[in-house]
Amino acid sequence: MADALQHTTVLLEEAVTALLGAAGPAPAGTWVDATFGRGGHARLILQRLGPQGRLVAYDKDPEAVAEATRITDARFSIRHQGFRELADLPAGSVAGVLMDLGVSSPQIDSPGRGFSFRFDGPLDMRMDITRGASVADWLAAAETGQIAEVLRDYGEERFAGSIAKAIVAQREKRGALVGTAELADLVARTVKTREPGQNPATRTFQAFRIFINAELEELQQALEASLTVLCPGGRLVVISFHSLEDRIVKRFIAKHAREAFDRRAPFAAPQAMRLVALGRVRPGAAEVAANPRARSATMRVAERTGA
């Protein structure tokens, strides 16, 4: 329970209201919390669901799944899966999908998970520690060009080439990087300038975390799956925390919020719009003051059409 208390859910009220609507208990139906985290959104959704409502949650993190088992509400179920797996739900069976793309505070603040340069710990960064390679495993064999590409594509890092060369040079001289402090120190020695107030390793840690968990690819797959599983009038609510995620969400909604014409068949009827964009929400000043990690959050809301 301590983990749940340590995490402050961003845009809690706004997200749940956007998902369920503001008036009264939500009617019968199935809703999806695609990224359970520590359950802040899920618990409020359950408070507002009617007796015939159901909430299905997903999370790759075994610690999040363990937290979810504390919820004894019969209307709730948790799946130890990434949110791309919501494609397995029946078509048109879901009344709303919520995706909170942020890393939870217990993940960031646990040295053993390796997500943060603020603590020394193993260079892991996997959301699901039961499978797949860690960042340390990948860096032990990755070529300079591969590392630089990840830093550019997922961290928008200006010094990607220099950092990649330094990582490989240290590996060849002293052995592979294994700890977060070791990586953070290497980046600090390599990056000579940085935005005021930003740790030199911020973009590197972001890039490696996104890459090792295939976060952007999974987001794209989950968004596409939402079009299939949402029923007409169903809501899609997505909270992102950096420009790479938000750009994907923004373009996805814009693409499906207009009629699509096939240039190869100019006289064919256009494909009807599949989403209606309902707006963009940012945290207010009071929330940012109380929870500085909310400052970069952007929530986008869309509604499935009947097409």
Rank of each mutant, 00 (worst) to 15 (best):
D3C: 15
L5C: 09
E13L: 09
A28P: 12
W31C: 00
P51M: 11
P51N: 08
L55C: 03
V56T: 12
A57D: 03
P62V: 11
T69C: 11
Q81L: 15
G82M: 01
E85H: 12
P90W: 03
P90M: 02
G96F: 03
L98K: 04
M99P: 03
G102T: 06
I108F: 14
S116N: 06
R118D: 11
F119S: 09
F119K: 06
F119L: 08
G121A: 06
L123H: 00
D124S: 07
D128V: 01
I129G: 07
G132Q: 02
A133E: 14
S134V: 05
A136E: 02
A140I: 08
A142V: 06
Q146F: 12
A148Y: 01
K192T: 11
E195S: 08
G197S: 03
G197E: 04
Q198H: 11
T202C: 11
F208M: 10
I212D: 04
E218F: 13
Q221W: 09
Q221M: 15
A222K: 02
E224C: 14
S226A: 13
S226R: 01
S226Q: 00
L227G: 06
P232Y: 11
G233A: 08
G234K: 00
R235N: 00
V237Q: 00
V238S: 05
I239H: 07
H242E: 07
R247Y: 08
K250R: 09
E259F: 09
D262E: 12
R263F: 11
R264V: 12
R264Q: 14
R274M: 15
L275V: 02
V276L: 13
V276W: 05
L278N: 11
G279A: 09
P283I: 09
A294L: 08
R300V: 04
R300L: 07
E303A: 10
T305I: 11
